[in-house]
Design a binder for these strands. Structure first.
Ligand SMILES: NC(=O)c1ccc[n+]([C@@H]2O[C@H](COP(=O)([O-])OP(=O)(O)OC[C@H]3O[C@@H](n4cnc5c(N)ncnc54)[C@H](O)[C@@H]3O)[C@@H](O)[C@H]2O)c1
Ligand SMILES: NC(=O)c1ccc[n+]([C@@H]2O[C@H](COP(=O)([O-])OP(=O)(O)OC[C@H]3O[C@@H](n4cnc5c(N)ncnc54)[C@H](O)[C@@H]3O)[C@@H](O)[C@H]2O)c1
Lengths: 251, 251
DNA sequence: AAGCGTTTGTGAAGGCACGCACAAAGTCGT
DNA sequence: ACGACTTTGTGCGTGCCTTCACAAACGCTT
């Protein structure tokens, strides 16, 4: 479902159900003595952040345990889906009781890779870049903005929420000196591909793209796209359908 | 795929090939005498905006016709998927040639409901609201921002790209006097549900929510959510997986 | 210790979407 | 006018995701 956003897909080859195809004479179903490798479906991954947020809210409300029913309600999904999602992470619930809020939060955060703070650079400090740079919701969720970049001389040098906007040429050094880095692209559509190429060349392997263009990257790079105009158009589609139904054009 | 975001589904008939199999001896399982209703799958709907954008780019490049292969390339999808998607809208291609750019663009725009300009109000003119209000990409795609609202007295009265920010109390009047309206929610998470309730009460049936909260709405209202922190977390998940593989923890 | 109510974890079934592969349909060249 | 070539539209198989339904597991009460 979700789609074509992430490029490198396949998790590890490991089948979920080991007992499937290879039936040579290996007596037991499989001899995996240890933790039983299970890949997490992409659809599940896309929901984990929501569970995490719901758990944070519940923890703040003082709850120590939640049932799958209550957590699902808070996250806006069905309880069965929630349980199956969590089952891919392991069994952290207690039957008859539910899940311990703090513990489950920790496990999901671990699985998402939020143990250490990820480095984020924002490229293109225009309208949108300014808003994102000043957003507190990133730091509070395990991301720290370590660089703001732009080509416009009138923007470079400006200080946005404690960070000085730097020229695009400092980009490579910043990406290389730090470890893994996530790049947020808020440049005009026309230059998005070029800037992205440069990011990738510098070693970036995760890109969040706000420019309304398809950008092409090597297989080992993940790109997710946020397209506000598309979202509005999808809403318009459904709104139109509702309008037609009301008029009686269709059942 | 996409998910639980949009509430209502089912589409309208829009038959492709009228000469199909309607035999009036409707003794069969269903008696649909006429056009044979075909719904557009939600996954397809979510891709239509991208096709539309690709077509705009191709038109601007001066092309009059495109093959499914070329259009798919421009839109970043597979050609088979593209053809199947377009087939839900009807048969607008010419075998051996491809699709006429302008005509196909028009058909998709029609189907998305972009014939007339949709009214959009933005509620919460903070960091993000300012950026969205000043964004030209909406007007150019069939949406016109007709209202900016906030509660903060220091923000109300400010003029953002030609529109004066108005107090929240003017909201009902604006929504009611105009026709169907799409609301963009860029208020703090804590008040999102309350503001949304007010929007729905005023008659809004389409909401694009940027606040990191699950908001509950009646069945007839569509909500789509844009969650930047979640996008980053999903990228982090894949980045972590890649890192582990590189270290050799997993095959 | 045993029973009872609650809740998890998961097998199984159904639905949806994707991609392949090809016949139908049209164009272009001769 | 006809054949060769190109490209659409779609039937079909496959795999993923969702949903249902329930046995196993656990706490609590007696
Ligand atoms: N503003 C919005 O609400 C909004 C909404 C949806 C999508 N977008 C998209 O986000 C992107 C940015 O939007 P915006 O409104 O901030 O535009 P903007 O013009 O205000 O900002 C773009 C910034 O990128 C910088 N830039 C240009 N070329 C660059 C380069 N090669 N390298 C680095 N920086 C460069 C510019 O100097 C400018 O500061 C656009 O692609 C836009 O379509 C914006
Ligand atoms: N800024 C970002 O980059 C960013 C990124 C992701 C998500 N978000 C989310 O978007 C929302 C807005 O973010 P922001 O950075 O613009 O915050 P902000 O605080 O700058 O803006 C919020 C605005 O909403 C107004 N407001 C508060 N209560 C209101 C009410 N009841 N009715 C109408 N207006 C009201 C405030 O006066 C303020 O102007 C938040 O929920 C935030 O979590 C923002």
């Amino acid at each position: 479902m979700d789609d074509d956003v992430v490029r490198s897909a396949r998790l590890r080859p490991g089948r979920n159900r080991p007992g499937a195809g290879d039936d040579l004479a290996d007596l037991g179903p499989c001899e995996s003595a240890v933790p039983m490798p299970v890949e997490v479906p992409e659809a599940t991954v896309s929901r984990l952040p929501q569970y995490l947020r719901a758990l944070s809210a519940l923890a703040e409300a003082g709850l120590r345990t939640v049932s799958s029913e209550a957590l699902a309600e808070a996250a806006g999904v069905g309880s069965a889906k929630l349980r199956k999602d969590l089952s891919y992470l392991g069994s952290y619930g207690t039957r008859g009781v539910g899940y311990e809020v703090g513990e489950l939060h920790q496990h999901i955060a671990d699985r998402l890779g939020l143990t250490s703070s990820w480095r984020v650079v924002i490229v293109g400090i225009g309208n949108l870049g300014h808003a994102l740079a000043g957003y507190g919701g990133f730091a509070s969720r395990g991301f720290s903005v370590v660089g703001l970049f732009d080509v416009d001389p009138t923007v470079v040098g400006e200080v946005v929420s404690g960070l000085r906007v730097r020229p695009l040429d400092d980009l490579e050094a910043t990406v290389r000196e730090g470890g893994a880095t996530i790049a947020v692209l808020t440049v005009p559509a026309g230059v998005a591909q070029g800037v992205c190429d440069r990011l990738v060349a510098a070693g970036v392997t995760s890109v969040l793209n706000f420019a309304p263009t398809v950008i092409r990257v090597p297989d080992h790079v993940d790109v997710r796209k946020v397209d506000l105009a598309s979202e509005l158009q999808i809403l318009a589609f459904h709104a139109q359908r509702k309008a037609h139904v009301r008029v009686g054009e269709v059942v």
